[in-house]
Design a protein around this nucleic acid. Structure first.
Lengths: 201, 201
DNA sequence: TGATATTCGTACCGTCTCGCACAAAATTGG
DNA sequence: CCAATTTTGTGCGAGACGGTACGAATATCA
């Protein structure tokens, strides 16, 4: 049974935590961690700084919350896409196409992948961001590898699952980078097609 | 004939512009553009802020100088590596191995590629950084493609030069990302090996 | 209704930020 | 030796930064 959240004692919150986190993430996504100020976040979420602070802790904690949430959502989405039992070529084509569309979206220009576009920069000086990033990359490799093991016959000749997996991840990485650098739809499609060709022959 | 730099009128500079640029780049490389302060740069270079300002302009101009210099150096190095006429497999293996070593170096931890690790984040809000990044990516693709066209027979069966090129670039991108996320030498080697396998069969 | 608990909004603190003004220092030209 | 020119270093100033104290507001509990 679903545990109904019991009413707490004091003044109720005037915002939804999830929505706020999403709006905050959008700002981090556009500007990166370091270039985002608490004022930017307050403006975007509609909250003022003390409320933000009370709900999530300081700026770094808020960023980490957005980061881990993104990691979970992205991996869930990737896992779902890879669990469909269509031909591998079709699965990958659809997957890369949808990823490219996400990477090219954004209110302030195409913004790539949140983790690759912001956490990688942050990773050197921020052990927690680095850990999330490393876990994200490893899990991505694992999901690809497991799918490739289930349909190894559809890989390009001579390509083992554990060899194809990091290259399948690499295709997503390069799409994320190229999108943020301003690649147009044609280039994104060409890269996606090249990845499928290299992986499936 | 080499134009001897004639002595200028006033007080001579007490520093070498190239060395300063290199030290400044190291700071940007570790922290990213936004998280780097002029004080950080002054401390690392030994100059004080007004000298830095006088020689390069503001923080953004200094970053762009470091960025374009890195682009030029990296592309020259890649071009040189790809112009050796050894077997393609050997060329790529050596190239990815050396790139991985560079990406794993750094006084404050493995720092990846300067452009991918800092300019990609910056790209969304900074048209000049985005332009340098986009040019870097395009030129990289071009260098790979031209080399592949010269030795198309060594590519994996069914892989065209213009298809293999973006994936060869993607391998460098993923190496840069993984290094900054803390990948150990074994993972870097495995990814490099996987890239060669996917490209050369 | 009154006590308690939680959140909200203003207002503020100390610190750091970038960029520059200004005078001293160091060199060349005459 | 003096004028002209350029760099150097101190030091400042206006503003942005992250973070918090505190009282008002809004809810539940008894």
């Amino acid at each position: 049974m679903v545990q109904k959240e019991e009413r707490r004692r004091g003044r109720p919150r005037s915002f939804d935590e999830g929505e706020v986190l999403e709006k905050a993430r959008a700002v981090f996504w556009n500007l990166g961690y370091a270039a985002t100020s608490l004022d930017d976040l307050a403006r975007a979420t509609g909250l003022n700084r003390p409320s933000l602070y009370g709900a999530f802790g300081d700026k770094h904690a808020l960023y980490l919350a957005a980061l881990t949430r993104t990691r979970d959502e992205a991996l869930a989405s990737l896992g779902a896409a890879l669990s469909t039992e269509a031909p591998l070529k079709a699965v990958l084509t659809g997957l890369y196409g949808r990823a490219g569309a996400v990477y090219r979206a954004g209110d302030a220009g195409p913004r790539g992948c949140f983790i690759i576009g912001t956490a990688v920069t942050q990773a050197l000086d921020d052990p927690e961001a680095r850990a999330v990033t490393a876990g994200f990359l490893a899990e991505m490799d694992r999901l690809f590898r497991e799918r490739f093991e289930r349909s190894a016959g559809e890989l390009a000749k001579g390509l083992a699952p554990e060899t194809a997996a990091p290259m399948a991840s690499a295709a997503l990485h390069t799409l994320a980078i190229r999108a943020r650098a301003g690649a147009d739809e044609a280039e994104m499609a060409a890269v996606a097609k090249a990845a499928v060709a290299a992986l499936c022959g």
